[in-house]
Amino acid sequence: MQLARYKKLSLAVMLSMGSGAPAMADVTYEGEAGTLSVGGDVELNINAYNEHEGGSSLFRTQSGERLGRDDRFNQDGRILIDINGDRQTSRHYARFKLQPLWNTSGDTGVDDAWFAVGSHTGSELKVGRFEAFDLFPLGQDVFVQYSGSTSNSLYSDGQSYVYQAREGRGRGDSGQIALSHRFGDTMYTEVATLFGDRSDLFDGDTYHGYDIEDDSKSAAIVRPVIAWTPESWTFAVGMEANLVNDSVIDERGEDIGDRTGYGARVSYGHEGLDFNLNFAHMEAHEESNSTVGVNTVWNNVGVGYIYAENDIDDVKPGASMKDITPAGVNKSSTLYSSYRFANVLGINQFDTYVGAYYSEVDHDNGATETDRYGARVRLKYLF
């Protein structure tokens, strides 16, 4: 009987998606076995921005070479299907989420894919692919080009790293486990873990000019967080650390996977006003990184500012300045803004966002100050 009901639900969903039915937040089916819902969104971007020629170092001008620029105009985005299941008993529950997505580039992938079990007293165990607690929220982040994904391809030689306490937050390629507990309505604790090959954290083949070895072993990143949410406020602190020695090594045999970071945030949200103040700091091999961010969203207008410092102790002697960030302190300042046009053309849950950013980077070791900037129009439709 239950199988027949779920088959009827699948047919109804396919018909509604293919017949031009009015937009819906989701389609939900409730049966004796639990609840199953299907929804999703379309997110398409039209971009105009500049980047440095060939992805080369921001700091090439230190060696006397003129820094080239490439102007980029492109379109990207994806369609995401959000599938959720929920089953309840008098004391416990089981839930799952699956979010397959199709990119306009032709690639396919998945955002979240997890299973969770918990109790109504507040404890939960989650296994799969997901994002843990956000220690550095960016607000209405429409376009800030350097930010990368949650955990992969974040650090790149030749760039100014903006650490945001997200190296162990999740959505890695090898899965993760998180244990959390809620104490009433105001206190939340979480210990998230991230396993597997973490060499993909480095967007490239080098770190400080040294080649990264291919024979990396599995890392084990632990990320505890505690958050207090009295009424409209949120106060949270956390850290992330790799517990495995030599998980990623360079050509010298140095343990460049030894990275420990800390994060803290203060947030406020009430009656259309959202505000975040964030801080993050990381100690890595021959490098430390500190970042402060502040942002707010009010009446569909978003504004944010991020300041970051990278202090690099040493780089490979004789390494090409075209490819690396020189030793010393480099500083970046990024200002970004956005505006949301809600329910465009009178279509419910079809929004258009306009966003832009400007980022300026300077180095205390003689490199000429440089900048990056861009703008984006985002079409967002929830169904």
Rank of each mutant, 00 (worst) to 15 (best):
Thr108Pro: 11
Tyr188Pro: 00
Gly55Thr: 06
His52Leu: 13
Tyr305Leu: 08
Ala113Ser: 14
Tyr307Ala: 04
Thr234Trp: 01
Ser153Trp: 00
Asp82Met: 11
Ser90Ile: 05
Gly175Met: 04
Tyr93Met: 05
Glu240Tyr: 02
Ala367Lys: 14
Ser267Arg: 14
Gly253Arg: 12
Leu277His: 11
Ala21His: 08
Ser105Asp: 13
Gly128Glu: 01
Leu154Val: 00
Ile83Ser: 10
Arg198Val: 07
Glu32Leu: 12
Arg87His: 12
Gly85Val: 00
Tyr262Phe: 15
Trp298Pro: 04
Trp114Asn: 06
Ser160His: 10
Tyr336Pro: 05
Arg223Trp: 13
Asp107Leu: 12
Asp250Phe: 02
Trp228Thr: 00
Glu65Ile: 10
Ser57Gln: 12
Ala280Gly: 13
Gly355Ser: 10
Thr229Glu: 09
Ala165Arg: 12
Tyr146Ile: 06
Phe341Ala: 14
Tyr155Thr: 04
Gly106Gln: 09
Ala132Asn: 11
Ser338Tyr: 05
Gly184Ala: 08
Thr368Glu: 15
Ala113Trp: 10
Gly139His: 03
Leu67Met: 15
Arg91Glu: 13
Ala116Thr: 04
Gln2Asp: 09
Tyr6Phe: 04
Asp351Cys: 06
Ala116Asn: 04
Ile221Thr: 01
Leu125Thr: 02
Gly55Ala: 08
Ile306Ala: 02
Arg259Phe: 11
Gly85Cys: 02
Lys322Ile: 02
Arg78Cys: 02
Ala327Tyr: 01
Gly269Met: 10
Ser123Tyr: 00
Tyr188Asp: 03
Ser90Asp: 14
Gly148Phe: 12
Gly40Lys: 06
Met321Lys: 04
Ala236Gln: 08
Pro100Gly: 07
Gly257Met: 04
Leu382Asp: 06
Asn242Pro: 00
Glu360Asn: 15
Asp323Trp: 08
Ala236Tyr: 05
Tyr6Ile: 13
Val162Pro: 04
Asp112Ala: 09
Gly20Arg: 09
Val315His: 02
Asn299Gln: 13
Glu53Gly: 08
Ser57Lys: 15
Ser149Phe: 06
Ala236Glu: 05
Ser160Pro: 02
Leu379Ala: 12
Lys322Asn: 07
Trp114Pro: 05
Tyr268Asp: 01
Gly85Lys: 01
Asp205Arg: 09
Tyr6Ser: 11
Gly304Gln: 07
Ser218Gln: 09
Tyr307Asn: 06
Ser90Asn: 10
Ala367Thr: 14
His270Asn: 15
Val315Lys: 03
Gln159Pro: 00
Leu335Ile: 15
Val301Leu: 14
Gly77Thr: 05
Val292Pro: 07
Gly374Val: 02
Tyr358His: 11
Ser10Cys: 11
Val222Gly: 03
Thr35Asp: 08
Ile347Asn: 15
Trp298Met: 10
Val266Lys: 10
Asp274Lys: 05
Phe183His: 12
Ser332Cys: 00
Leu58Asn: 14
His285Glu: 10
Asn103Tyr: 15
Ala356Lys: 03
Phe59Met: 09
Ser63Asn: 11
Glu369Asn: 14
Tyr381Val: 01
Ala178Gln: 15
Gly304Phe: 13
Leu44Thr: 11
Arg60Trp: 07
Arg129Thr: 00
His281Thr: 06
Glu167Ile: 13
Asn289Gly: 04
Arg376Gln: 09
Trp228Arg: 01
Gly109His: 14
Ser151Leu: 10
Met17Phe: 00
Gly122Ser: 10
Asn343Pro: 06
Gly328Thr: 08
Thr61Pro: 05
Leu44Glu: 11
Arg265Lys: 15
Ala25Gln: 06
Phe279Gln: 05
Asp173Lys: 15
